[in-house]
């Protein structure tokens, strides 16, 4: 290492301070830190500052009242509903996407001819802008004209008198369908990456012992994939927790508040009631819940990046 340090000494005898040499992490990490501080941390502190104010919607004057919004949030029924919907949505979507993703990855991960094309096509949903995905499924789930709705009516799975997005007990499923469609392919890619990186030897040994493919899957594949599964769940989970576009476009949190997630609720307070301080409080509460939940997850499953 000392050799390397010597090597960058300019001939003129001028010596860079140690922390500016490429041996020190500072020059490598300074630019990204600057960007994150300016565009990430500063706005966050600003949002925190906002949340400590009480806004009068008639006079539009905000006064410093640090407890007001944070106490209000605890007694707000809609907030508790939104927390419930958010966890439900996140857990169900993660479970479906993970299982489907793993199964499809197993299905498509072969060198046989034609499967390359299938794998390529499978990534297509990923590139659709989520806001557009929302519109796409909104049109397909339209109670009168949607192709999906009519398909469900025809098979008797759904009654034409209660379209999927119009019913408070099925609307969340409607949004989940859009999410699962868009993000399962992402899981497929991750799982495929995991499968490809698995060592071959244990399988050969298992085959000699006469294990069936199913046994091999549960005894070998799954345990060896557990690490990547944990990371995938974490990354997707964080995104799911903040889902906004689908809810906004498809139901606006409705019917009633049946699909109102935390970010959707913050959006409503922000867009419609213009109560910036309270909207900030809800958004920060979301952040707190994400951090707490994911920290627990990281601890329990010992995730390391």
């Amino acid at each position: 290492m000392s050799q390397a340090t010597v090597a960058i000494r300019p001939a003129r005898g001028f010596v860079l301070p140690r922390f500016l040499t490429s041996e020190h992490p500072f020059p490598w990490l300074a630019p990204i830190t600057a960007v994150l501080l300016i565009f990430g941390v500063y706005p966050l502190l600003y949002a925190l500052w906002l949340s400590l104010h009480k806004r009068n919607p008639a006079t539009r004057i905000s006064i410093f009242d640090p407890e007001y919004n944070w106490l209000k949030i605890l007694t707000d029924d809609r907030m508790w509903g939104a927390i419930g919907h958010t966890y439900l949505y996140t857990i169900v979507a993660i479970a479906i996407e993970l299982v489907l993703g793993l199964l499809i990855a197993l299905l498509l991960d072969t060198d046989r001819r034609g499967y390359g094309v299938l794998r390529a096509l499978m990534t297509l949903p990923l590139v659709v802008p989520p806001a557009v995905t929302g519109m796409m499924f909104l049109l397909m789930m339209d109670g009168s004209f949607g192709v999906l709705s009519r398909g469900l009516y025809a098979t008797g799975l759904l009654s034409p008198s209660t379209p999927i997005l119009a019913n408070s007990s099925t609307a969340l499923t409607g949004i989940l369908i859009a999410d699962v469609w868009q993000w399962t392919p992402f899981m497929v890619l991750i799982m495929m990456a995991g499968l490809r990186a698995l060592p071959k030897d244990p399988y050969e040994a298992a085959a000699i012992d006469g294990a069936t493919p199913v046994q091999a899957f549960f005894k070998l594949t799954l345990p060896m994939l557990s690490k990547i599964i944990a990371i995938a769940v974490l990354i997707r989970g964080v995104d799911l927790f903040r889902t906004f576009d689908y809810v906004k476009v498809m139901t606006e949190g409705g019917p009633g508040t049946a699909t109102e997630t935390l970010t959707a609720y913050a959006g409503t307070i922000y867009f419609k009631n213009a109560d910036f301080p309270y909207a900030s409080t809800i958004a920060l509460m979301t952040l707190i819940l994400v951090v707490v939940t994911s920290s627990l997850f990281i601890k329990i499953f010992k995730v390391r990046f």
Partner: peptide
């Protein structure tokens, strides 16, 4: 005509009405 009307008309009233009409509450 009142300063809070934009919020009531876009959030509180139609959201609660939605709960009623779709049977959520």
């Amino acid at each position: 005509d009142m300063p809070l009307w934009a919020g009531f008309a876009n959030n509180e009233i139609p959201t609660e009405l939605g709960k009623l009409t779709t049977g959520q509450d």
